[in-house]
Simulated scan of single mutants.
Amino acid sequence: MDTTRIEKRVGVNAPSDRIWEILSDLENWHAWNPYETSLTGTLAFGSSISLTEALPGMAERQVQARLGDWQPYSQLVWVEKRGFMFNAIRYYEIEELDRGACIVANGVIFSGLRGELFHDKHRKAIRSAYDDIAEALKRAAEG
């Protein structure tokens, strides 16, 4: 099965608890994330996550996913079945290097038969959006 990863990593001058505070406030993602909005759900293993995804050059779509993993101050991961044998794993990871200095990654892993075709067609738009998301999260955490 083919897999493709798109990821953006950024240094953030804020402690992991500040970054986690922003990520775990699902209902207020619209305040900092212009591409993943109207997020609802609860932080519980296997819980449902719902959001509106509006990436540049792509039609807005409703995402229904399951929380795959979460660890306070460290990671938030949801899994979306996007069709027959095509899945997406969306993630945010926080690595605290020192108090007040973190590396934050946000990305997606596409897997399945259509994953490579989808990625090839939309690579630029997804990469651009994830770059913007990383910078917006950085501004929100450092502000």
Score class of each variant (00 low, 15 high):
69 D>V: 01
97 L>D: 05
41 G>Q: 05
105 A>K: 14
101 A>V: 14
24 S>I: 09
136 A>N: 15
97 L>N: 13
99 R>I: 08
74 S>I: 10
79 V>D: 10
41 G>E: 11
141 A>W: 11
21 E>M: 10
76 L>P: 05
135 E>H: 14
44 A>L: 13
72 P>L: 12
2 D>R: 03
78 W>D: 13
1 M>A: 09
80 E>M: 09
135 E>S: 09
51 L>P: 00
61 R>G: 01
143 G>A: 14
90 R>E: 01
74 S>T: 14
20 W>R: 09
99 R>P: 14
71 Q>V: 15
37 T>K: 14
64 Q>L: 12
34 P>I: 04
35 Y>M: 11
93 E>D: 13
105 A>I: 08
33 N>P: 14
21 E>I: 05
40 T>N: 07
48 S>P: 05
1 M>L: 06
134 A>G: 10
30 H>L: 02
72 P>I: 13
86 F>L: 00
88 A>Q: 03
47 S>T: 08
139 R>L: 13
88 A>N: 00
112 G>W: 02
88 A>M: 06
107 G>L: 06
134 A>M: 06
114 R>E: 00
91 Y>D: 07
14 A>E: 07
137 L>T: 06
105 A>Y: 02
32 W>F: 12
120 D>Y: 06
100 G>L: 13
104 V>W: 08
100 G>P: 08
6 I>E: 05
6 I>T: 01
116 E>G: 03
65 A>V: 05
69 D>M: 08
108 V>R: 01
1 M>G: 12
